[in-house]
């Protein structure tokens, strides 16, 4: 464990908690892409199946349980409890255009042709594009609630910190995982446009609105 990975995990945890609390307290999921949240639930489910097969540490196991629990709770709130506030018209990204290519790539490019490994690889590739429905929805509505931008910032920051963690691990431990690194770079690049808007607008107290 290093400081970058720790703060990456904490940033990721913060994002998940911010979103869950925002929906729960405002009793509304307006502006939130349910499709992205379903993709994240799939990402955690396919990645953390090793919860059933291996124990790494209390930290590792508890964080995985929290991630899975919160992501399913968020999906439940969006599609069941606060379904009336779900903005289905603007959440129109065709996720099958993500899942099919990512699934195919995971079967073609992986470290080991075993079920758990292919599911892990699928989860890594899927996570790199899972935010696209959310970013697409914001581009369609032309704006985002400030709390949603904080959620997105933490979500984007987490993988950016992981990139530094991988540099650290390569330099000090000689470990690297090309699949995780390439997907992490793609994932972080997808946030760059948002990061620019977040720093130039939200941090100056303005609302995040895109030129419609």
């Amino acid at each position: 464990m290093n400081i970058f990975r720790l703060f990456g995990d904490l940033s990721h945890l913060a994002a998940i908690i911010i979103l869950l609390l925002k929906i729960w307290k405002s009793r509304s999921c307006a502006g939130i892409s349910g499709k992205s949240q379903i993709l994240f639930a799939i990402v955690f489910t396919t990645r953390y199946l090793d919860l059933l097969t291996s124990f790494i540490s209390l930290y590792n196991t508890s964080m995985k349980m929290i991630y899975i629990g919160c992501s399913y709770a968020t999906v439940y709130l969006i599609y069941a409890k606060f379904r009336a506030t779900y903005d289905g018209n603007h959440d129109s990204f065709r996720v099958e255009f993500l899942i099919v290519p990512v699934g195919g790539l995971a079967v073609l490019i992986n470290h080991d042709f075993s079920l758990l490994e292919i599911l892990w690889t699928f989860s890594i590739y899927l996570e790199s594009v899972a935010i696209l429905p959310q970013l697409f929805m914001i581009s369609k509505t032309g704006e985002a609630e400030t709390i949603t931008t904080h959620y997105l910032f933490c979500q984007g920051l987490y993988r950016a910190l992981y990139l530094i963690n991988w540099i650290w691990r390569f330099y000090f431990e000689g470990f690297f995982d090309m699949i995780a690194i390439v997907a992490g770079v793609v994932q972080t690049i997808l946030y760059c446009d948002f990061f620019y808007l977040y720093v130039t607008k939200v941090l100056k107290g303005k609302k995040l609105s895109l030129p419609a």
């Binding site: 990975r5 995990d9 990721h12 090793d50 291996s54 790494i56 540490s57 590792n60 964080m63 995985k64 991630y67 470290h111 490994e117 892990w120 992981y162 963690n165 991988w166 691990r169 390569f170 000689g174 470990f175 690297f176 995982d177 090309m178 699949i179 995780a180």
Partner: peptide, 10 residues
């Protein structure tokens, strides 16, 4: 350095 997976990572 091998291409070991980071299965200890989240």
């Amino acid at each position: 350095p091998g291409k070991l997976n980071h299965k200890d990572e989240l």
